[in-house]
Simulated scan of single mutants.
Amino acid sequence: MITVEHLSKRYGSHPAVDDVSFTCEPGTVTGFLGPNGAGKSTTMRMICGLTPPTSGTATVDGRPYRQLGNPGRRIGVLLDASAQHSGRTGREVLTLAALTMGVDRRRAGESLERVGLNRTAARRRVKAYSLGMRQRLGLAYALLGDPAVLILDEPANGLDPEGIFWMRGLLRDFADRGGTVLLSSHLLREVEAVADRLVVIGAGRVVAQGDKAELLAASGTVVKALDMPALEAALRRHGLTGTAAAGGGVVVQAGAEAIGRAAAEAGVVLLELRPADSGGLEQMFLSLTAGDSVQEAVR
């Protein structure tokens, strides 16, 4: 389990992370979302003991990362796919990590195979790897110690569609076997497909968190009518407003029953009435983080 309580980080007078609290439970994938510079990476670095917080705490299984004995056996971390020694081969990187963690050296080859890096790729030097191959190597490193927790910052960056689909399955399987995953990504559709819970951060503060289904349900209802002006007038009479949606409909912050009754009373024929779940995460993300002004150089 990952527990973050009132975590803050200031650089001078600038709050990079401001009173952030959330938990990641075993058996779940938590999507950690926010625009560039919102404080995601800083928060993850504080969880991993790389950046000292100004205030607050972050623990893994009840203990700060720096107090974990042999942390690679408890928590797998991928924060920067380019952090590996470029002059070493993929196998050398993992073999040295295995020796450091005190695990069987044979796990290096097993971990490489698990992430789709074959023997030829294992013998190549990291400097010859594509970004997608570095991501796979970083994930192999994170999984090497057979940890119960994964913290991954943009792990799908540089992967092709097949690779993204593969990673989704790997993370889902990891969580389904009782693991805990904290996943930061800009690929909202992929997060929506794999995550159980969501934490959305904007300008250093948590703006929404909770069960994915509940948050997306709260994003509204899509409605489309044969006569859209008549529908909009009917909605206004009931105090309901909507925003334009793809396909000519509107998204209304109300349930289907309330919208359907308003349309029925006005004699409006509806062509579509459904939860805003298709693309709902993208819409929710944009509405929650709209107007955030951040300074990426600081965060």
Rank of each mutant, 00 (worst) to 15 (best):
T3S: 13
S8L: 11
K9P: 02
G12H: 00
G12T: 12
G12V: 13
A16K: 07
F22V: 09
G31M: 04
G34L: 11
G34C: 08
T42Q: 01
T42R: 05
C48G: 02
S55Y: 06
T57W: 01
T57Q: 10
T57G: 11
R63T: 15
R63F: 04
R63I: 00
P64Y: 03
R66C: 06
I75C: 03
I75F: 07
L79M: 00
L79E: 05
L79P: 00
H85C: 02
S86K: 12
G90W: 01
R91I: 07
T95V: 14
A98P: 05
L99D: 12
R105N: 13
A108T: 13
L112P: 11
L112I: 15
G116M: 06
R119T: 15
A121E: 14
A121N: 11
K127T: 04
S130T: 12
D146A: 08
D146L: 10
L150G: 08
P155F: 03
A156F: 04
D160K: 03
D160V: 07
G163V: 09
M167L: 15
M167K: 04
R168Q: 05
F174P: 00
R177E: 14
L183E: 00
S184G: 05
L187A: 06
L188T: 06
R189V: 08
E192C: 05
A193W: 06
I201K: 09
G202E: 05
G204C: 04
R205F: 11
Q209Y: 00
Q209R: 01
G210N: 07
S219T: 14
T221I: 12
T221S: 07
V222S: 03
L226D: 15
D227V: 07
E232R: 12
A233E: 15
L235D: 01
R237D: 15
H238M: 00
G242D: 13
G242I: 09
T243R: 15
A244I: 03
A246V: 15
G248E: 06
G249M: 07
G255W: 06
G260V: 01
A263P: 02
E265S: 10
L273A: 03
R274C: 12
P275D: 14
P275K: 15
G279C: 13
F285M: 08
F285E: 09
L286Y: 09
G291D: 07
Q295L: 13
V298P: 08
